[in-house]
Design a protein around this nucleic acid. Sequence first.
DNA 1: AGATTGATCCAT
DNA 2: TGGATCAATCTG
Length: 178
Amino acid sequence: MRLPQQFYNQPTLKVAQQLLGKFLVHKIGKKTIISLITETEAYVGPKDKASHASRGKTPRTEIMFGQPGFWYIYLIYGMYYCLNVVTEKNDYPAAVLIRAVKLQPENNKLKTDGPGKLCRALKIDKKLNGQPAFGKTSLWIEDNGLKIKPSQIKKAPRIGVDYAKEYKDKLWRFYLNN
DNA sequence: AGATTGATCCAT
DNA sequence: TGGATCAATCTG
């Protein structure tokens, strides 16, 4: 079952943890690429200095201020795309960054253990920016019925946000321990 | 630890 | 219009 828009209209920290163990599915023509989400990060609200939204609404970041359940995809360091999904209510900027996935089946050679790498492997680019993650769409998240116990979720500081002052040490990165 | 790479943002 | 910045990756 595809996750409905309402799923994303919840506290971001909750969404980030609940996305672990779900399937990220990208349908390209006849091909369907299925992967299991293993690592996420939460970017929460206008005061989170690690978030693009902390400097206010701009043409790039306005998608984060919009409705929940839409993809926010941006180019970083000139070479890599990062995949985020917008959370919480309209006008509250927040999103979950999907940092790592495992391809299904696992015998696939492609590496997907980083936000840039997974976008490359799943052929995700800016064309999907601003597209919905629910309903009839080519990229979505699927509830596969897997139950993740709280003890399987590890928490850690987010990557690459040393500049974020009082927000840099928040344990807003979540990953599965196997 | 350094190089890479280019869109974005903000200050001139 | 220009320069600093950047939620990353690869190479050695």
